[in-house]
């Protein structure tokens, strides 16, 4: 462990477990997630589809869909537990202290209301301002996210905006009440490749200016390498490696992370599959005993079948793998 800073992290997850109670038994979708994000820090979260990245975001803002629920563990926002708060208190946190950006800007906005109406209602839900003040603020926000002629465009309907422009509006909505943390769940996946970089740039710039921390969920290692301060790698509902971006991307420790980073493509393309690693991530119903990665691991050892490795400090980061156990 390195030095313990005085200000608490913006977000801290302690052993978070999320389960789905189905008629086939209880499925454990997140199994003891622990991570933290410092004020102003950008934490990248990577992993294959189904690893539990989105679920982690949903659990933080209290929007797990039934039958999903937090079974154990803690979510702390600026040092205070929020996972057990009543719905109404959580609502005040959503939008106000934690902004969220979803994958698909085309469907995130309500098609029946003007962009401005949606911004103003969000602002006025969280801040004690008048309609005019809110409108002025909305126009300023739109200008900040890079929408030209924002005082005119504010009265447009979502369908009058392109995909990239809509995602800018979504960013403006997420930032509307000056939150401490933004959870961006694959904010560019649904967008045209040509605008992806711009959107990330806007997000990065605005958050840096405001000192907003970001939990950036993405498939895109290129984006992570350029944007994130630290990276968490998820596999089968667990964090298997977390650390400074340079370490994790350049010299990953965990065999899975190695495979994942090895698949970083030339800048613009995204890996559809991890070519370096045989096989696929297990389903929730069939997560192997011991290290969840062992059936695919090139370095698998006998004990990997039985015991589960936990995150342990390795260099500046943490790794959950018996290869990197202390004293190994």
């Amino acid at each position: 462990m390195t030095s313990q800073s005085l200000t608490p992290p913006v977000l801290e997850l302690r052993n978070l477990v999320v389960e789905f109670v189905t008629r086939h038994g209880t499925l454990r979708a997140l199994d003891g997630i622990s991570l933290s994000i410092a004020p102003g820090e950008v934490l990248g979260v990577v992993g294959e589809s189904g690893a539990g990245k989105s679920l982690t975001g949903a659990a933080v803002i209290g929007l797990l869909e039934p039958p999903g629920r937090i079974a154990s563990g803690e979510v702390l926002l600026a040092g205070q537990r929020i996972d057990h708060l009543p719905m109404e208190d959580l609502r005040h946190i959503r939008g106000k202290r934690i902004g969220t950006i979803f994958q698909d800007p085309l469907t995130s906005l309500d098609p029946l209301y003007r962009v401005g109406e949606q911004l103003i209602e969000t602002i006025r839900t969280h801040l004690p301002v008048s309609e005019q003040e809110a409108r002025a603020r909305a126009i300023a926000l739109l200008a900040e996210v890079g929408i030209p002629a924002s005082e005119k465009r504010i009265d447009g309907y979502p369908h009058e905006f392109s995909g990239g422009m809509r995602q800018r509006v979504v960013i403006a909505l997420a930032l509307a009440a000056e939150p401490e943390l933004i959870i961006a769940d694959e904010p560019t996946t649904a967008l045209d490749v040509s605008v992806q970089a711009q959107i990330i740039a806007v997000l990065k710039k605005l958050c840096r200016e405001r000192g907003t921390a970001v939990m950036l969920i993405t498939h895109d290692m290129g984006v992570i390498a350029e944007t994130a301060d630290r990276v968490a790698v998820m596999y089968a509902g667990r964090v298997i490696e977390i650390g400074p971006v340079r370490d994790v991307v350049k010299s990953p420790k965990h065999p899975y992370a190695k495979g994942l980073m090895g698949s970083i493509p030339a800048l613009d393309e995204r890996p559809e599959r991890l070519l370096q690693i045989e096989g696929a991530m297990p389903r929730l119903t069939a997560i192997p005993q011991g290290c969840a990665f062992h059936p695919r691991c090139p370095h698998v050892m006998p004990r990997c079948h039985e015991a589960r490795p936990v995150l342990e400090a390795v260099g500046a980061g943490q790794v959950a793998c018996f290869l990197h156990e202390v004293g190994q």
Binding site: S49, G50, S54, L55, L63, E65
Partner: peptide, 12 residues
């Protein structure tokens, strides 16, 4: 937040 459903789920 994308919770895969049979029609929209990203994971096969």
């Amino acid at each position: 937040m994308t919770i895969p459903s049979p029609s929209t789920g990203p994971s096969s």
